[in-house]
Amino acid sequence: MTKSFKEALKARRTFYQIENKSTLSDKEIRDLIRFAVEFVPSAFNSQTTRVALLTGKAHEKLWNIVKNVLRERVPAEVFGKTEEKIDGCFACGYGTILYFEDMAIVRSLQESFPTYKDNFPIWAEQTDAMHQLAVWTMLEDAGMGASLQHYNPLIDDEVRKAWNLPGDWKLVAQMPFGVPVAQPGSKEVMSLDERVFEFTD
């Protein structure tokens, strides 16, 4: 990392204004993702997270899927603004990272450990979130900007069909990324005294 972990985590922000450029080669992006998938922890070492990297035409295809699905659901008179946001904030980037959870493994764990049955879907989401943060922070450290989007579950079926992905894969989030062309605004942070507590007995 060019920054310390703390510095990179502090600098990580949501970037909506990105362009179709990358500070990393495609191999470096793949290696970054593979590093996160290998070392991010999961409950019971279940390793339920699945990640798909979309660049080039695949990246374009994803955001066309999103627009086509939303076109059928969003009133025509306001769809223009929706399309403008997608094209100007997400589709304009270099690529998109898709995060999934393999629900077949989750169901298997539920059957094997019925005492924790209700927890396994929650733990899977937590694992997925850790992967997202790890990748997002490493992208920031490499000079890239990203955001986290949630057009699932509306697009799940079309995404699985487009790339022939297993039906048990549940789409959790989409992370468009690229080189930032503008910095995000300031962010309000609640007082840490209202969020962090310490007890000694």
Results as ranks from 00 to 15, higher is better:
residue 4 S to W: 02
residue 5 F to C: 12
residue 5 F to E: 08
residue 5 F to N: 10
residue 6 K to N: 09
residue 6 K to R: 09
residue 6 K to A: 13
residue 7 E to Q: 00
residue 8 A to I: 13
residue 8 A to E: 06
residue 8 A to T: 13
residue 9 L to C: 11
residue 12 R to P: 10
residue 13 R to S: 11
residue 13 R to N: 10
residue 15 F to M: 10
residue 19 E to I: 11
residue 19 E to V: 12
residue 20 N to G: 03
residue 22 S to F: 00
residue 23 T to G: 00
residue 23 T to N: 00
residue 24 L to I: 08
residue 29 I to G: 03
residue 30 R to W: 00
residue 30 R to P: 01
residue 31 D to L: 03
residue 31 D to Q: 00
residue 33 I to V: 10
residue 35 F to S: 09
residue 36 A to P: 04
residue 36 A to F: 01
residue 38 E to M: 14
residue 38 E to I: 12
residue 38 E to L: 14
residue 39 F to R: 15
residue 40 V to P: 01
residue 42 S to E: 03
residue 47 Q to S: 04
residue 48 T to C: 01
residue 49 T to K: 04
residue 52 A to W: 01
residue 53 L to W: 07
residue 55 T to G: 08
residue 55 T to D: 10
residue 55 T to L: 11
residue 56 G to E: 10
residue 57 K to R: 10
residue 57 K to S: 12
residue 58 A to G: 14
residue 61 K to I: 12
residue 62 L to I: 12
residue 62 L to W: 06
residue 63 W to H: 07
residue 63 W to Q: 06
residue 68 N to R: 08
residue 69 V to H: 02
residue 71 R to L: 14
residue 74 V to D: 06
residue 76 A to S: 15
residue 77 E to M: 09
residue 78 V to W: 02
residue 78 V to C: 07
residue 82 T to W: 03
residue 84 E to W: 01
residue 87 D to H: 03
residue 87 D to M: 05
residue 90 F to K: 01
residue 91 A to I: 12
residue 93 G to N: 06
residue 93 G to E: 01
residue 94 Y to P: 02
residue 97 I to L: 01
residue 98 L to P: 07
residue 100 F to W: 02
residue 101 E to C: 07
residue 101 E to L: 06
residue 105 I to K: 00
residue 106 V to Q: 04
residue 108 S to A: 14
residue 114 P to T: 13
residue 114 P to H: 07
residue 116 Y to C: 13
residue 117 K to M: 13
residue 117 K to N: 13
residue 118 D to H: 10
residue 118 D to Y: 07
residue 118 D to T: 14
residue 120 F to D: 06
residue 120 F to R: 05
residue 126 Q to L: 08
residue 128 D to C: 15
residue 133 L to S: 11
residue 134 A to D: 15
residue 134 A to W: 07
residue 134 A to T: 15
residue 136 W to C: 04
residue 137 T to F: 01
residue 141 D to L: 02
residue 142 A to D: 01
residue 143 G to D: 04
residue 147 S to G: 15
residue 149 Q to W: 07
residue 152 N to K: 11
residue 154 L to T: 14
residue 154 L to H: 09
residue 155 I to H: 02
residue 157 D to H: 12
residue 159 V to A: 05
residue 162 A to W: 05
residue 164 N to M: 06
residue 164 N to P: 01
residue 165 L to E: 04
residue 169 W to L: 02
residue 181 V to L: 05
residue 184 P to I: 07
residue 185 G to V: 05
residue 187 K to H: 11
residue 188 E to I: 13
residue 189 V to M: 08
residue 190 M to Y: 08
residue 193 D to K: 06
residue 195 R to Q: 13
residue 200 T to G: 07
